[in-house]
């Protein structure tokens, strides 16, 4: 039972990690590429970390929760880096498929 749950979590995590990077390689402008790594990859690695926490909790006696720390950290930092990257790209006027916002005071 635990084995099946672990396998599902690991596979889901690996697939999402892969799709995030696929988006990074495949999409056409910087702003759309930003979406893959921030969401898909974060959830993918989150799944893998939860699988790891579950695995070590079952295998060794006693709960192993420190993987949750990395998951939390990734979920807190991913949007911050995405925001900063988007801000930097707006500042540098990186080529975009969407019309860039009119009141672009990204220089501050």
């Amino acid at each position: 039972m635990i084995d099946i749950l672990l396998s599902v979590l690991i596979l889901t995590g690996a697939i999402f990690t892969f799709i995030g990077s696929l988006g990074l390689a495949r999409l056409r402008d910087f702003y759309t590429r930003l979406h893959g790594p921030t969401k898909a990859t974060t959830l993918g690695v989150g799944c893998l970390l939860i699988a790891s926490a579950l695995y070590f909790s079952v295998r060794e006696e006693g709960v192993s929760l420190h993987e949750v720390l990395v998951t939390l950290f990734l979920f807190i930092t991913a949007p911050v880096s995405a925001h900063l990257l988007a801000k930097a790209a707006l500042h540098l006027k990186v080529r975009s498929l969407a019309a860039t916002p009119p009141d672009n005071d990204a220089a501050d």
């Binding site: 921030t38 991913a78 949007p79 988007a86 801000k87 707006l90 916002p101 990204a106």
Partner: peptide, 12 residues
Amino acid sequence: TISLTPGTVSAH
């Protein structure tokens, strides 16, 4: 929240 939810990233 916006950055982590469906199809949106806050940019500026």
